[in-house]
């Protein structure tokens, strides 16, 4: 494959309180084996050399597991490739000459810090209300004392593989964090270790979710479609059943 040229339309916003706008850039001679973020690095190098302010982007592991990066590319959280994080998108997936729009993950619960960087600490606060087993370190019984079926362990791991990127929130028309929260609740609802405090967990995490300003889930399924880990909305259903049981009984 030959090298390509692209037009970019990128969201620029100086600070949390300032107005933002889309700004056009061109990038030329881009290798198809370059990652999307490497292409953005190249653009930023250009801007720095020209004395302009580079585009603020956050990224870290660049292998799809830390959940730091997260851009809305061509209108889709993490771009159009399924089960793929922003840092795992490669330029071979775009057509030569294509115009690519790049925006931050938008939600009122994710205030913009600068350009494409948002504050997602609301997700940490949801976890702090019960996204764990509430036992102290030390005194744990032997790890094989409690057999757990392979299927159960796999289901729990499916849920627990969430990377906390917030794409589900960005994709949801209601800005709901139901997939994020549901996955954590579902992990512990499947496991015997999560049993003692399962009622408290679901009630308090759901309450925090509301408090942060995330919307409700109305089953659009957009979250599942963009989730880089392929987490299923069945975990939201699991959360609802947990919530229902905890509220009634």
């Amino acid at each position: 494959m030959k090298n390509c040229n692209f037009k970019l339309l990128v969201w620029r916003q100086k600070g949390p309180q300032e107005p933002g706008k889309m700004v056009a850039y061109t990038v030329n001679d881009i290798s198809p084996d370059m990652s999307f973020l490497e292409m953005m690095d190249l653009l930023n190098e250009d801007l720095i050399k020209k004395g302009e302010d580079p585009i603020a982007i956050d990224s870290d592991c660049r292998e799809g597991i830390c959940g730091t990066c997260g851009l809305v590319i061509q209108g889709l959280a993490h771009g159009s490739k399924q089960k793929t994080c922003t840092c795992q998108i490669y330029m071979r997936d775009f057509k030569d000459g294509e115009t690519i729009t790049v925006e931050p993950f938008r939600s009122s619960a994710f205030p913009i810090i600068k350009d494409l960087v948002v504050n997602r600490s609301a997700l940490d606060r949801i976890i702090s209300k019960g996204g764990y087993v509430a036992n102290n370190i030390g005194g744990a019984p032997d790890a094989n004392a409690m057999p757990i079926s392979k299927e159960t362990a796999e289901l729990a791991l499916d849920a627990s593989s969430c990377i906390g990127c917030g794409a589900c929130v960005a994709a949801c028309p209601n800005s709901s964090a139901a997939l994020f929260t549901g996955a954590k609740i579902s992990q512990y609802a499947h496991l015997p270790q999560g049993s003692p405090d399962r009622k408290k967990r679901v009630l308090e995490m759901a309450q925090q979710m509301d408090k942060e300003g995330f919307g409700n889930c109305s089953n659009h399924g957009e979250c599942e479609a963009v989730c880089p880990q392929g987490i299923k909305i069945s975990h939201i259903a699991k959360m609802r059943r947990e919530f229902f049981k905890a509220s009634l009984l």
Binding site: V133, A140, D142, A143, N144, P147, A153, Q187, L191, Q193
Partner: peptide, 22 residues
């Protein structure tokens, strides 16, 4: 060994055999 016990108690979903052991 205590690390593994601790992590399992925390609900870390390690890989398991069909019998349910780690």
């Amino acid at each position: 060994m205590a690390i593994i016990d601790q992590c399992v108690a925390q609900g870390v979903p390690f890989a398991r055999e069909y019998g349910g052991f780690l």
